[in-house]
Design a binder for these strands. Structure first.
Ligand SMILES: [Zn+2]
Length: 173
DNA sequence: CGAGTTTGACCTGCGC
DNA sequence: GCGCAGGTCAAACTCG
């Protein structure tokens, strides 16, 4: 788990101290990003999709394919809102304060780097997230959040990382 | 021992 | 219909 952030391609550009600690870069959320027009680490587009969220439960989450094909009529059309943004980072482990459990990894066409699928581990929280590194710019990571968290961030916002996060500083121990 | 990752199989939508 | 492409599951495995 949590292997080191090295990638198949030209990884010589950056060298992460592969001792025991990895660099952690924590960006804010796209919603909270204070675009004061200052430093812009969150480059370019931030797409926003939205569909009808008529279903109150919004318990779309994991619908087992084998299970749902039986019914043939399920609510899987509903799609939570998707927030995608690009980040310039050398590590793909962008800790945003939530706990993510990886549930898949696929290679996409036109991209050498695989795409990772994560899901929030909080009970009742069905937020998904996928991380992908662009082939063209290997230092750019596209993160896509899907859904809204139904719980507060459970991470101490009382340490250095918080300040570093505000500063957009990249730490390498 | 348990939470989290790995990895191939499996499902579905879409285009031809 | 079929095959590809993207998305997900779940069993096995790993690590703390
Ligand atoms: Zn959550």
């Amino acid at each position: 788990m949590m292997s080191y952030p090295f990638f198949p391609s030209a990884s010589t550009a950056y060298s992460v101290p592969s001792s025991s600690n990895m660099a952690i870069y924590r960006p804010s959320f796209p919603f909270d990003v204070n675009t004061n027009g200052s430093d812009r680490l969150f480059e370019s587009s931030m797409d926003q999709f939205k569909s009808n969220s008529s279903e109150g439960g919004s318990s779309d989450s994991g619908i087992v394919g084998a299970d749902m094909k039986k019914d043939g009529n399920s609510q899987k059309k509903i799609r939570s809102q998707k927030y995608a943004f690009h980040t310039r980072s050398q590590v793909d482990i962008l800790d945003d304060g939530y706990r993510w459990r990886k549930y898949g990894q696929k290679t996409v066409k036109n991209n050498i780097f695989p795409r990772s699928y994560y899901r929030c581990t909080h009970p009742g929280c069905n937020v998904k997230k996928q991380v992908q590194r662009l082939t063209k710019d290997e230092e750019v990571v596209a993160t896509t959040y899907e859904g809204v968290h139904t719980h507060p961030v459970e991470k101490s916002t009382d340490n250095f990382e918080h300040i570093l996060k505000q500063m957009h500083i990249y730490v390498s121990p």
